[in-house]
């Protein structure tokens, strides 16, 4: 049985192919003008390496923003369910997933089978998303990748209290004008970011009803400072995944594809 999962996000598109329950390939590309193009290109890229053709796929499930438009996928599932399912497959003891992407922040609880139990997702505001870190690192004049390690260099992280990212930017500029140290401000920003994700997770009691392991996915998972602060807030280890966290959505979609194939096609 060969199944595929495809995840078209706002910045990247990912495809993952599974054969008999094992991952045989996955690929990530930056998005093309339309979700349909992105999906076609990334799937083609992934298939090429394996020598498979589109017709060889028994079932394909799509997720992400462009998920309904992809003609070769037979079903679409929300990225919330897919992220949970994917992370759970990587580490079956996982029950909590925090996904912090460029535009969204999601807190996800899955059951012992990886099915969605509860979730929360931020409203429109950019506070608590990767976008927030981008804005702030720009204001600090440092590279986004440099931001995370500041948590470990600072002895005195400053409190960034504003929740709105626009106002937080003012606040950071004000701190810089006051002559405060970039390291301490950066460490404070990581702390503030973690606090926001923690608040969202608390709204579905992920903080006090966690029955297994907790992981963080999405671009912000690469920020070691945010992860460190989240561990402190949850008073729990944030486990890392054996696979690129970015691929979790496509992996989850492929797992759903396998499930639907078994349910609908193979009798």
């Amino acid at each position: 049985m060969i199944v595929a999962g495809i995840d078209v996000g706002s910045l990247t598109a990912k495809a993952l192919i599974m054969k008999d329950g094992e991952i045989i390939d996955f690929d990530i590309i930056t998005v093309r003008p339309t979700p349909v193009q992105s999906a076609g290109d990334v799937m083609e890229k992934a298939l090429n390496k394996t020598g498979l053709k589109m017709d060889d796929l028994d079932y394909c499930v799509s997720t992400g923003y462009g998920r309904e438009q992809i003609s070769f996928s037979r079903k679409s599932i929300s990225e919330i369910s897919c992220h949970g399912m994917g992370a759970h497959w990587c580490r079956p003891s996982i029950r909590g997933v925090i996904d912090i992407g460029g535009q969204d922040c999601k807190a996800i609880i899955v059951d012992k089978d990886g099915n969605l139990d509860n979730f929360a997702m931020n409203d429109k505001c950019a506070a608590g998303t990767g976008r927030f870190l981008e804005i702030i690192s720009k204001a600090l004049g440092i590279d986004l990748a440099e931001l995370g390690p500041l948590t470990f260099k600072s002895n005195n992280p400053l409190k960034i209290v504003r929740r709105c990212s626009v106002f937080a930017e003012y606040e950071v500029i004000f701190l810089l004008a006051e002559g405060k140290d970039v390291t301490d401000i950066g460490a404070g920003v990581n702390e503030a970011m973690a606090q926001r994700a923690f608040s969202l997770a608390s709204s579905i009691n992920l903080n006090n009803k966690l029955t297994g392991e907790l992981t963080v996915t999405g671009g912000v998972a690469k920020n070691v400072g945010v992860i460190k602060n989240l561990e402190k807030l949850f008073d729990a280890e944030i486990v890392s995944l054996p696979l690129d966290p970015q691929i979790m959505g496509a992996l989850g979609a492929a797992l759903f594809a396998r499930r639907y194939y078994e349910k609908e096609v193979r009798v």
Binding site: V161, E171, E178
Partner: peptide
């Protein structure tokens, strides 16, 4: 809620 604006600012 002083988080809307820190007093010094």
């Amino acid at each position: 809620d002083k988080r809307t604006c820190p007093p010094d600012e």
